[in-house]
Nucleic acid binder design. Sequence first.
DNA 1: TCCAATAATTGACTGCGGTCATTTAATTGG
DNA 2: CCAATTAAATGACCGCAGTCAATTATTGGA
Lengths: 188, 188
Amino acid sequence: MQKRTLETRARLVAVATALVAENGYGALRTDEVVKRAGVAKGTFFSHFKDKDALMDLLIGAGIDAHLDQLAKAPPPETVEELVALQAPLLHFMTQERYVFDVILRLSGAAAVAEIGAIATTFGRYLDLTVPWFEKGTFRNDISAELQADGMQAFVTQAMALHFCALHEDQSMGARLAVYLRAWLCPGG
Amino acid sequence: MQKRTLETRARLVAVATALVAENGYGALRTDEVVKRAGVAKGTFFSHFKDKDALMDLLIGAGIDAHLDQLAKAPPPETVEELVALQAPLLHFMTQERYVFDVILRLSGAAAVAEIGAIATTFGRYLDLTVPWFEKGTFRNDISAELQADGMQAFVTQAMALHFCALHEDQSMGARLAVYLRAWLCPGG
DNA sequence: TCCAATAATTGACTGCGGTCATTTAATTGG
DNA sequence: CCAATTAAATGACCGCAGTCAATTATTGGA
């Protein structure tokens, strides 16, 4: 791989980042990226398989930054702390309908060979939250892995309902709290 | 509304249904629909807001047919029955990656005014499954609505992981069974 | 230093969803 | 039965992602 390659790629990413900062993710156009970066259309697609691959990189980086914060914090002891701790991450992932759609689309790796940034963050989310459940603060009848896995399902559900007009009465955090209480503190 | 309108619309839907039967949902092209239906491109879009609106109709009808089956069956008494009963529906929704993506995208109504067929089926799914939990066969510490809502979250999670290469070891049904046991039979 | 061989870049082109001013057909009232 | 009005249909056109044969730059060996 040539030095030139890295430079071009870095310029594309830098330009894309700037454009996203200006107009948001959904408004990004590959034409505008290549124009500002001073390269041809084809160059973009020799660096990224498709537009989704660039989005995967940008959004994945955003999620990762939020996971860094989660990693720093002490393990939450209550459902309320669990919800509060994850609020910034949920807000980031639902900032735009387009962003949430991309995340859903790319969160599962289609093939082992093509695990992207977002799919990686979903793995990291589990690695990071499993220890929260290993101390036995919540349930003891099921594994910490399953508790974390289920939390992920409810986080996704809460975010999905956030975009649903029929469920606008409740906030995302309040909805998640209800789910997690039922999931992590059954009978209590 | 004129009779002609209904005829044209019916022809578009019939052609689209036939094309889907031939090549699947993801391969459907609006150009081919209008060509076979013998109408102009613009006619398609005066009948459907966009391609998603047609897909909403076609896929929504498919889901509805499966819900009809669920409605006929007696309320399941065990997690195994719960999983077995829903297996055909899950299989339908995951028959193609494209179909699952469309369902996720359209399952939440963006506005109360634009509740489509798929969003309606998601409401119907809840209406239909809530009674399963009202007899107290499963949990009694949380409402039947919440039990049904949670089941929906886990069904979605199980389907999403179905497309994830990292989780191919387990079948969708097996995965769902694990989730539902933990969700509906805590401590048992 | 020069010459293949390889890697990177180019931009005209394609596919496909979606738009809109214009034309054509149906409907209604006199 | 014939305007006048409203509804439906038309197709050339646009935006934007993605392709690929041709071109240009880089590199490693003789």
